[in-house]
Amino acid sequence: MGDILAFADQQDGEIRGVALEIVSVAASRAAKLGGSAHALILGGDGTGKDASGLGAYGAEMVWVARDESLTHYIPEVYAPVVAEVARSGNYDAILFPATARGKDLAPRVAALLDTSLASDITRLDVEDGTLVAVRPVYGGKAFARIKFQGFPTVMSLRLNAFGVAESPASGKVQIMTPPVKGAGRSRVIEFQASRGGTMDVSEASIVVSGGRGMRGAEHWTLLEALRDALGSDAALGASRAVVDAGWRPHGEQVGQTGKTVAPKLYFAIGISGAIQHLAGMRTAQTIVAVNKDADAPIFGVADYGIIGDAFEVLPRLTEEISDYCSNG
């Protein structure tokens, strides 16, 4: 007992950045439980060349399940493989990232293992030798401390809420050929990349969100410029008002009926700060608000606020930040 298994997501054969946080959490909690962390990578031929690299983040062992049928994510094919590996060890917990894929896969694995799942957790403690998770409920208006009965438990972790930590472990790679059960009853037909760029708002460590105060889709160039100045870990977000107006795709919406984000830095530009928007971003580490209304509720949660016109503030902000980022 005491071991924890971390699902390490890959894309096109390469381990994704989000995996490092999951493996780091698995390693530190397993250490407290007196066990060790294992990671699991699923993918097509050639997957896992970089698998031993997870040792640097605390993975004692890295399972690589490699098969042509795992090249693309098909939940009905992936879930039984993860469940099989989970059963093969003595795991206290199986951890997933709370990405679209993680949130799709975790409940299926939990159901196959006949065990419960705590989704989108923001904290994971070890108390009296057992795991206790904390996760938001009621749109972030309360946090629930969750206790588990029965092992292994399954959890998905809110990205950026825990952080990445290095802790060297052996990272021994174990290649396995999973028993893959016949063709699934679902097929991926097509993938349409969104125009917003590849970094998803829920994964980004910096988010630049615009609201109705931006007055129209054509003004998003100002927000894009700020995002670009902030570097490749930054992504765009939006309020629902903006999505409803058709200025931005729903995939960028932050809030109760959109994505929940916990970045290091969140910019709310021309966003009033309605309770449903706050539900999606109040666990960000640092919040910056720019709003021309000094009474806007967003200033109630912001760490730093500028009262002013976004159209005047943004160009200056972009300029100062690119100066800083390019000069170090």
């Binding site: 208006k141 946090f143 401390r145 969750i146 438990t153 109040r282 009262i307 002013g308």
Partner: peptide
């Protein structure tokens, strides 16, 4: 097999501040 042991209000965010008005801030 999953129970809510306790509910808590969200941690209060530290009081923020207005750094100023307009682009000069």
């Amino acid at each position: 097999k999953l129970t809510i042991d306790r509910l808590e209000y969200p941690p209060e965010r530290a009081q923020g501040r207005i750094v100023g008005e307009g682009a000069d801030a």
